[in-house]
Amino acid sequence: MTTKAGTILYLNGVSVSFDGFRAINDLSLVLDKGEMRAIIGPNGAGKTTMMDIITGKTRPDKGEVFFDGNIDLTRHDEPGIANLGIGRKFQKPTVFESHTVEDNIRLSLKGERSVFAALFAKNSVADDRRITEILETVRLDGRRDALAANLSHGQKQWLEIGMLLAQDPKLLLVDEPVAGMTDAETAETARLLKDIAREHSVIVVEHDMHFVRELDVKVTCLHEGSVLAEGPLDHVAADQRVVEVYLGR
């Protein structure tokens, strides 16, 4: 294993099981600063559970999880980890449907996260400018005042990515960003993620192989809770074990 220094995310020998079922089994994964990684794997490979562990939703039974070199993530809870600089997009788009697009982004903007700060918060010009910027990035600047509930499925995905950007995280975890999208939207999302990856470290979990190919980054294939293969997509796709896992024996 490489050293922790210089990595944005460092998982070593992580295991977790639910009622005897091993969802993650001795998983080790290292992500360098500024890297974008695609994670693939069949259903039940442990992709979402891995995200749960990184974001503090699930505690690992054993193993090390370090962020940004030497921050032990197992010692923090979800809001703590979010404030450390890890943003997460859920598999199912989760936005605040009763709020406008603008308010969704505003609630996500980096800043003081206490109740009293929120009670007496005033909208600043700098915030407004930042919101405009983000909305432009996620192609939603025309729908600033629309209710999130009235967005299309793809737009909700983008809004959620925009909320992640507003947090200004060091690491983004993006779970199935193109599920349910049209081909045009998928291509647009790939461009969006590549834009984002210029300034952030990103982990993308995705089933859609065309999309993964468009991302053109290093790929990790998970199976039964541990890493099966890692490398460029063509290398991974050529791996006999990966083929077996996907096609069945």
């Binding site: 974001t55 939703k57 979800e78 809001p79 979010a82 404030n83 943003g87 997460r88 859920f90 989760t94 936005v95 605040f96 449907e97 009763s98 609630l107 996500s108 996260r113 909320m163 947090q167």
Partner: peptide, 10 residues
């Protein structure tokens, strides 16, 4: 509306 979303936003 989305408690866990707020949590992952910090």
């Amino acid at each position: 509306d989305a408690e866990s979303r707020t949590r992952f936003l910090g």
